[in-house]
Design a binder for these strands. Structure first.
Lengths: 132, 132, 132, 132
DNA sequence: GTGGTCTAGACCACG
DNA sequence: GTGGTCTAGACCACT
């Protein structure tokens, strides 16, 4: 899977990396049980420090997306990703709130906003990046 | 207008403050031309550092939400808030992308996601918190 | 509060440190809302690296024992420590199991084992180290 | 005897294996003088590395639970397991201490804690798993 | 070769 | 001055 990072972004690298893995799962480029690169090799590949990769992996582990075997390395959780629960829904609303609030203040209608969301969903369903 | 801050959040206080002002505009609790408290008085009111309030105001000014006159004080932009342009739409998509990607990976359907958004829009339209 | 670490132990330093804080809470030497030393000062005090202290603090935060304010520093969770739930009880049993299994195989009776536990409880109730 | 290993646990496999043997002794599924599988066959049976089984056996030997004869193979110590001595009692207290300290901080009473222990003892006395 | 731990030192955002 | 992030390099346990 291709990993895209913006080293100049305010977004911490380990967060970007974490998001890329989640995105890979969402796009079905990464499947339950599938192995991920080792901390060291991924760090070397994308030219960042292994601790940064490790931090991303630790967070993904803590969130239930991946398992880390001490020796065998890292795999996507074979039992599938933890499904959205109430805690996640609250977190999601909390993150959406300021985005929607600013959109309204800038004159975007609900319809327009939902279309933007739908467009993004389409990107995932089409699996446009499946063959990278 | 009531300002709600969570001093224990990871979200920087100046960002929370900025978001609260934007939310006030979205809820029509703050109108174009309306005066905002001075940096000093607001800082005293909510018990935070002067610099923090200033940083929030500077960002709001830079984004075109407010005007800061050295003498006359701070007012909501009388010409109205800058409408969503292409740059904003891109930024919006950029912020929505990881939220949607995680939602998909957690098994949320597009329909469910859009409903969450609609629910949040409803909160704004009802103006439920207008009189706080 | 006095922190005792064995730098030669197999037990990782950050785990020992985490345990010492939990012990401080159990002994009521640390109270809800009370401030803990900053990462840097504690690291300097006990002569270890600040990242090691940080790792302990991060785990304590994740477990709900402490709050970490970006600027104000670290405090014991003012709302009190999260109470034992089912997950904790299972974890506790899981950790006790091998201890009890070995004790039985070494000929310790249940009564003797429970006495050992009671003795340790007494140490806490007497608050023997309250004035360190 | 059934060996249960969690290859995805943080607990090293050789420790888990060692604990399972001790548990077998505690449950009287393994008796003094009884033969254990050879390193090779056990490793093959449970599908783990030779070295790992060997490490577990070496530790059990060092602790006095088993004897390893180069030719005759591996047997549970015919003289019985070494009984709890002062060193063991200290080690036990040392391991119980953080468990009890966390339990107290989470609001568990001494009575509740001792009941958890008793429950685990019951599992052994009933020998519920003797025939697996 | 894998992840886990620890150290050392640097820069940044925040208040 | 606080924690957050990132880098670099080292040693260890496990398999």
């Amino acid at each position: 899977m291709l990993i895209r990072l913006d080293l100049e972004s305010n977004e911490p690298i380990y967060i970007q990396l974490r998001n890329q893995v989640v995105e890979g799962i969402a796009k079905k480029q990464l499947h339950p049980g599938e192995a991920l690169p080792s901390v060291r090799s991924l760090a070397a590949d994308i030219g960042i420090n292994l601790h940064t990769v490790n931090k991303a992996y630790q967070q993904l582990k803590q969130e239930g997306f991946i398992l880390i075997h001490r020796q065998k390395g890292v795999v996507i959780n074979p039992d599938g990703v933890p499904q959205a629960d109430e805690a996640y829904m609250n977190q999601l609303k909390f993150k959406l709130h300021p985005l929607i609030s600013e959109s309204i203040s800038r004159g975007l209608s609900e319809k327009e906003f939902l279309e933007v969301c739908s467009d993004i969903f389409s990107d995932f369903n089409k699996g446009g990046e499946k063959y990278e």
